[in-house]
Design a protein around this nucleic acid. Sequence first.
DNA 1: ACGAAGACAACACAAATGTG
DNA 2: CACATTTGTGTTGTCTTCGT
Length: 295
Amino acid sequence: HEAAHLPVELHPMFRFKMRAARSGKMKHWGLTSFYAENKAFVKRILKHVEVNGSTSARELSTRTTKKSSWWDWDEAKTALEYLFLTGELMSCGRGSDFARVYDIPERVLPKKILQMPTPSETEARKELLVRAIHAQGVATMRDLADYYRQKPAVVKPLVSELVEQGVLREVSVDGWQDKAYVHRNAQLPKRLFATALLSPFDSLVWCRPRNERLFNFHYRIEIYTPQAKRKFGYYVLPFMMNGEMVGRVDLKADRANSKLLVQSVHTERGVKRATINRALSTELQHMSSWLGLRR
DNA sequence: ACGAAGACAACACAAATGTG
DNA sequence: CACATTTGTGTTGTCTTCGT
């Protein structure tokens, strides 16, 4: 994912992506072209961080006019993001103002990780696919690709290789059009009857087609949708009850008044409000309590 | 061989919230 | 009040594949 936390042990598996960004093979939001046109500047920024230590974009900013939108990056921010993309800089956290703080990998990662050998692109991609199948259990080729945001076309032959090597086993799932795969050691688990409010960024829902296939649950994040076009609300949490997606709630923490506000509740087709109210109420209580909200 | 459908890439376009 | 913060989604256009 773009801005997900990952275990540092995965660093070697993503080095091929950093290399691709550095060589210009991988295009990203115009960062590649910015670098091509501002090489000396970008190198100066990197040198600055190496010498002076971690920095936020603001510290290096020369902006004099107001920002027009979130996406209105000045040169310093663009340079830092380019270096972040190529792995020459990493994030070592965020400041008190939310701003991402950048530093060189040598000061962010443990030595043990930096010294780990770099696998080939193919080996790295296959390792990511194996981790994906462990996470997903049963998955289509596209599901596996999506888990670490790989491209289906690139992954397709690798999945075949993993099948030939006996790492993955091809299976079919009732109601699925595409072929599915399981890990060779996969065992049929007991059915789970989980009940939980899910984060909009929960790994259970981030692969939309899989989510629709498994749970018949159509979900889109509406944080980036203009208010007038939103169907369910700004920050909507899917609600799973007894292992099924039964609805969604738009929540907001009103910290000033110590209240968890439930802005809206929607149930899926065929689900009656009365059947979810109790479980939902319990989950909302849990949530307000760990957020430290009284009501 | 042809048309249709599907896949894919490129692109445009979006705001509420915590902190000091 | 000022100020800082990201990436998901739908559309459009193009290429690929599939079925007849």
